[in-house]
Write a protein that binds this DNA or RNA. Structure first.
Length: 224
DNA sequence: CTCCAGAATT
DNA sequence: AATTCTGGAG
């Protein structure tokens, strides 16, 4: 035995000790989380900030403002976040449903599973975007998994690389206390290690806080 | 599996 | 210059 616990809780503890508390997704409202969740699809957050700043400058950070905005002007606001044609449509569709569901108050009154199903029905909101909204916008205890999560924990060796979204999420939700604040923190820590150490190419295994507990890190000192 | 639109890394 | 990367839909 290596003596290293490879339970998810122990791995996340390791990240907490390495990185300390994170402050994450400081949006002013659940609706802003929705906007960010759509705009950040396949896109670095840096570019999302530029697009959100353009919306804010026009006072368009509300679902009614966005559905009423001229589509071509909306598209120009979103351009910096990439995929601006699809994201313009996705954001408009999400805003229409958001309003139809009774806005933030309406969604907040719904059970988590109902809210999740309603939001997933929007064309352009997949599981990760919806779970961002539920966790960061509505503080529901939903574990957000993403490409970082799959890469990190499959390299560590605790899940198969081919695991799907729902199964990966279920693995975390089964093993961790169902607590929104801790899910929030955990996701932020995962993003940190995924960006700075467990990168897609040339992972920095020797400096990675997970290295002592990681199959990949123990077998393959750095590089790829 | 391809498209979508870019930025980051090599 | 070429390749790779973060969601979701068709």
């Amino acid at each position: 035995m290596s003596g290293q616990s490879r339970g998810l809780l122990a791995l996340l503890d390791r990240l907490t000790r390495a990185f300390g508390p994170q402050q994450w997704w400081p949006a002013e409202s659940a609706f802003e989380v929705l906007v960010g969740a759509v705009l950040t699809q396949n896109t670095a957050w840096r570019n999302v900030e530029t697009a959100i700043a353009r919306l804010r400058a026009r006072d368009w950070l509300s679902p009614s403002a966005i559905v009423n905005a001229p589509v071509d002007e909306l598209r120009e606001c979103l351009r910096p976040s990439g995929y601006y044609n699809v994201k313009t449509q996705r954001l408009r569709a999400a805003c229409e449903t958001w309003l139809a569901l009774g806005g933030e108050a309406g969604i907040d009154a719904m059970p988590t599973t109902t809210a999740r199903a309603e939001l997933l029905a929007v064309r352009g909101l997949g599981p990760e975007s919806v779970d961002d909204v539920l966790l960061y916008g509505f503080h529901r205890p939903v574990f957000v998994v993403d490409a970082y999560t799959r890469r990190i924990f499959s390299r560590v060796g605790v899940v198969p690389a081919s695991i799907g979204y729902d199964d990966l999420q279920a693995a975390f939700e089964a093993e961790l206390p169902r607590d929104a604040a801790r899910f929030n923190e955990a996701h932020a820590l995962i993003v940190s290690v995924g960006k700075d150490y467990c990168r897609p190419r040339l992972p920095r295994c020797s400096a990675c806080p997970l290295q002592p507990a990681c199959d990949h890190g123990r077998s393959q000192l750095d590089g790829a």
